[in-house]
Amino acid sequence: MSGLGGLSVRFRQSGFSVKIPSFLGPSLPYLLFAGAIALVGLWVENFYYLQVLTFIGINTLVALGLNMLMGYAGQISLGHAAFFGIGAYSTAILTVHYGFSPWIGLAGAISIAGLVALVVGLPTLKLSGYYLGMGTLGFGMIVHILFREWTSMTGGASGFVGIPPLSVGNYTFYSPTAYFSLVWGTVLIGVIICRRIIDSRIGRALRSVHDSEAAARAMGIDTHMLKLQVFVLSALFASVAGFLYAHFVTFISPGTFDFLTSVRMVTMVVIGGMASIWGALLGAALLTLLPDWLHTFSEFEMVVYGLILMVVMILLPQGLTRGILDLWEKSKGEDIDIKGESDGDSFR
């Protein structure tokens, strides 16, 4: 393990997974989550708030997928903005240039992103640690250049205009409330999919790969295949998010899918808390909201932004979720300090 070996780290009974008895597992959190979405959807009428919340949902979707790859399987990707972009541009091109319905666009976005992830992942995932980071970073940059330079298809640097809004039959998702519900409904489905995977045999295998790839292989796990599968899965999440993004803002430009976006996605996962589904949500929310809150600092905005991220990482090195849970357990006096290794560090 890495350098945290000697630190005193709090362990919970079995990490984050609680044994699931029924189809959805402990359905209470989901019901609460769905209830919260519905409440917000019904009560918030301010266009701006709904828009921000929708962006949080889209980012959460990306973070959820990336969290499966980083938090659970322990593989880093610094090129996830590429899949986000592929999702957005695929549907944009299919709907505008070829006049297909957006739902064909969705199918296109998913299959293209999945295929690209497969082709890119096959050689790249043989790498690990920093080298995997470099490999995915290079991939992200290539795709970004493609968006910018393939002017006839993508509209180049000036962007892609006129992406149609989503509609089902006669109903169009025009109103912000409708789109908000669509996005967060998708997030809910994403959360359930992730939860189901994590609590399965595959989920355990992912965590074991994270912990010790050699030992996982000795257990008979085809680790290369497994990493490839989770890479494709996370790419699919990002592409669906890209699809939702494109039809929400109806205008996309290459700048949205650059290297910084990839870094921001990684930051969401790390800040929120690795290997935690709710961490993806928290991280996405914080990183989406922060720039808005910090407008008051005008030119110091980015300084304060960086400072906040630093403080969070110093005070809660395991991310927000873990940190909040620790505080909660401490307040209930249930914490056990055990010398051991943490499962939060995974930049290896």
């Binding site: 393990m1 362990f11 009974q13 079995s14 990490g15 997974s17 045999r201 355990r204 295998a205 965590r207 074991s208 912990d211 010790s212 050699a214 030992a215 996982a216 000795a218 257990m219 008979g220 796990i221 051991g340 290794e341 943490s342 499962d343």
Partner: peptide
């Protein structure tokens, strides 16, 4: 040994039954 440290004992045993 190479047991999976962060995972529970039960999950470790289940990992053994992966195949």
């Amino acid at each position: 040994r190479h047991i999976f440290g962060p995972m529970s004992v039960l999950d470790n045993l289940k990992m053994g039954a992966y195949t």
